[in-house]
Simulated scan of single mutants.
Amino acid sequence: MFWTLIAFGAVLMVLGLAVRLWPIPAERLAARPGPEGPGWHAMEGGVKLVLPNAPEDAEARLKKVALDDLRTVSPAPGTYVTRSAIWQFPDVTRVWRDGAGALHIHAHLVIGKGDLGVNRKRLERWIAEAGLDAGKS
């Protein structure tokens, strides 16, 4: 029994290290997917929020809030990678403005199929902390 627990623990450690070292595809760090309409949009593995009337400093406010999160890093401007607390699963959040000036925020997982609403909850928190109005649709 003791050796079974040791083996199980070793497997969990290897899996945790593999997830931590899993490369994030470059296209995930640069993607700007639709939809384009205002409000919240459920997407496979995440969520997208479009704010048509966001203030000029919205990106700067979101950047500050994102980087205040100890599990979030920014590998490129407008791109944030947040890792889950225990297993270190990476989630990518992209922030950009379109030609009409609307602010787009897309948060999605990298590993797996469903995020269990984690990305939306994090975006709702970031939006609130940044003092932005996202509505609740």
Rank of each mutant, 00 (worst) to 15 (best):
D98E: 06
G135F: 12
I86C: 08
L116T: 06
G39W: 06
H104G: 00
R97Y: 01
N119D: 11
L123C: 06
L62W: 04
A54K: 00
L5A: 12
A100P: 01
V95L: 05
M43I: 15
E27L: 10
H108W: 02
D68E: 15
A85Q: 13
K64Y: 11
S137L: 13
P33L: 12
G135N: 11
S84H: 04
I24P: 01
Y80E: 02
T79C: 15
A54T: 09
A85L: 15
L21F: 14
R83Y: 03
P90V: 05
G135R: 07
G101W: 01
G34H: 08
D98H: 03
N119K: 03
L109W: 03
K64M: 13
N53L: 11
L67S: 10
L70H: 13
V14G: 04
V50T: 10
R61D: 05
D57C: 09
T82W: 06
W87E: 09
G112F: 03
V73R: 13
P52H: 06
G131C: 09
E124S: 08
A42T: 13
I105A: 01
M1L: 14
Y80I: 02
K63E: 15
G37P: 00
V118C: 03
L103A: 02
K121C: 05
F89W: 05
M1D: 13
P77W: 07
L67T: 07
V118P: 04
R28K: 14
